[in-house]
Design a binder for these strands. Structure first.
Lengths: 365, 365
DNA sequence: GGTGATTTGTTCACGCTCCAAAGAAACGCG
DNA sequence: CGCGTTTCTTTGGAGCGTGAACAAATCACC
């Protein structure tokens, strides 16, 4: 380790520029200068390097507004086909896979509709292997052309170690799923809590591209929360992420899959609602109370609601917002924007792929 | 704004080195090299600059262990007397003031035992002015020798704007207290939520000097929480900090000073307990439940408990810990250490002073 | 008491990243 | 065809950091 400088600064601006080019499609250098506050000299040098490395191409296609006077802008865009990543999302009822290009756009995606609960981990790994091979092949690519694999999994996931500590999919066993997949596909593999992934995806190509602090609440089979704080994914001690689904909303409530009682997950998750539909009335209230309490402390400028429970059950989402209005301090509530964002399977898998892309872009963190 | 580099990198290592010298008393350059992973050349250059600027002095006093072989170490320490700061803490029942030296050690401190509730803000500002003038004079200094003033206040404080949006001391009026004090003393003044200040102080000279993520819970008159996340104080949207005291623990509970019902503050704060001692039984449970839920999400490696309610009421603190054991996910609970830390008035005021010292050290954030 | 090993601190030449300023390129306009 | 305009590149230099060689101050040991 050299210290702070070479890593932070060094790759930092290069990363920012790649990221800008990805986000803003074909973009001229001048615009990069304006948005980054870097000097033209620096932008010229860095983009020159990117073009030389084959990551970026320049074209004279006109982009729009500037009236036509003066030297025409040269538009830059990512050489999207040069590198590919694969994203996988595990849910209780299916496995979603997507192959993305270097810009994070899905090239091909598929869904394996298989029930995963109570399957041994090795079997699940086999299914993932099959799905990935199939999807890569359908995309017209060979496995060697894939730079890496990102996998989103609900539960308590230690991303840095690649292990699941608890998950509705794997149960209480500690499973090094990343290693199991690497053994099968010989690709660098990262796993991450699915809600964390959603947060990453929202900041990467979703509804929070402008923010460094926000929360994503996902309510599908499972309730989850991803937090971006200071522009970075919040993982707590030991790299284990936020477990919003296991916040306690009823002392001595129903028994949860996690082994405890009264978890939010037992009253508001898709899993619970499918077994006990009359919970629907209270689900939004409970979610809202738990979220309001969290937001009274964290006071984030935006909360993004995703997952089928929140995007297709109007009642739940409306009650949730009503609870926020009621339980958050008014000063803080005013400063918090609530956004509902419906996600498809492909979006999840793209989020997982963005785990890989961050590395390819040379992220500084 | 130049970009990322000059600010982040530039002052960064200088700040780290000043901070190391402050923390580890007389310290040799070699040790700074070991602890920062900077090169000897860099440390030599930066410390040379500090000595030239008069912020640091070198002495040949022996520090200890190294067996005596080789060139003897030259020990560096802060020139503590060169600059001074003043810290102030407002509570409902008193104003605490401390003058600190450049190393953050209290040179002199005093407490004004006055009740502040229902006093107009201008009167409180007058009292603070008197206290500061008195304390500075008692310390044998003149006001011109003070580099700045930091003030800790309970409530919803917008630190960047210098305003109180709600506080048990000022009520619901929006009060620009920083400006009111600057007008009286002509000193650069910052205000901050008192619990945030406690967090800053714990990381600056308390029980969390080794951590970049932790929480401080204070239970005195008021319940508060300060969060350090990623080495930085967490302030939410609009710079308003964490409001742990107004988390809802009872739907339709007692009316809180903030105007809402069922706040944690109504069942566990010193203010509530003094009026209603039979709450004592439940106070720890409620605190513990609210904290457990937060920690299930944030999963921090350490929680520091401070404030008279938690440090002098064994029952409350014990019940709190029991609730954490019961309500946190076991995996996460194991990763979280609970520390009780008794604070005096002087400690609070030193924390406030450290607001000023950070600036003097040239903090990069 | 000299000699060499040991540890600490400094100097020097160089690399990396960035910038300001000047220059070059590529266009529309009259 | 020159001229203003806008975009991009080049040039020279500043700031911060490093590795490697060097200088300094001591102890161990014959």
């Amino acid at each position: 380790m050299k210290s702070a400088d070479p890593e932070l600064t060094g790759g930092g601006n290069r990363f920012r520029i790649i990221d800008l080019i990805r986000r803003l499609g074909p973009i001229a250098r001048v615009e990069i200068v304006e948005r980054t506050n870097l000097s033209p000299a620096t932008v010229s040098a860095i983009t020159g390097g990117l073009i030389e490395d084959g990551l970026v191409t320049a074209s004279h296609v006109e982009g729009g507004e500037p009236s036509g006077r003066g030297r025409p802008r040269v538009m830059l865009q990512l050489q999207a086909g040069i590198l590919h990543a694969v994203g996988v999302k595990l849910s209780l009822g299916r496995i979603s896979v997507a192959v993305t290009d270097f810009a994070g756009r899905a090239v091909h995606s598929l869904v394996l509709p298989v029930r995963l609960d109570r399957q041994p981990a090795e079997t699940i790994a086999d299914l993932v292997e099959d799905g990935v091979r199939q999807c890569v092949s359908d995309a017209g690519l060979r496995l060697e052309a894939i730079s890496g694999l990102g996998i989103g999994i609900p539960g308590v996931i230690d991303a840095s170690a690649g292990r699941s500590h608890w998950s509705p999919v794997f149960g209480h066993a500690v499973v090094n799923f990343a290693a199991m997949i690497e053994r099968r596909l010989s690709l660098p593999t990262q796993i991450e809590n699915d809600a964390n992934l959603a947060a990453l995806a929202e900041s990467w190509f979703g509804r929070a591209q402008d923010l460094a602090d926000f929360a994503v609440v996902t309510a599908e089979d499972t309730i989850g929360m991803g937090l971006l704080l200071g522009g970075r994914l919040h993982r707590g001690a030991h790299g284990i992420g936020a477990e919003f689904g296991h916040v306690k909303v009823e002392v001595d409530g129903a028994l949860c899959r996690c082994g405890q009682r009264g978890c939010l997950d037992t009253v508001a998750s898709g899993w619970a609602l499918s077994r006990n539909p009359e919970l629907l009335e209270r689900a939004g209230d409970m979610l809202g109370l738990a979220l309001a309490n969290l937001m009274n402390v964290l006071n984030l400028p935006r909360i993004i609601l995703t997952g089928s429970v929140l995007t297709s059950q109007e009642l739940v989402a409306n009650r949730l917002e009503a609870a926020l209005d009621r339980f958050m301090l008014p000063t803080l509530r005013e400063a918090t924007e609530i956004v509902r964002h419906e996600w498809g399977d492909e979006m999840w898998a793209r989020g997982a792929a963005s785990l890989v892309l961050r590395r390819l872009y040379g992220e500084p963190p």
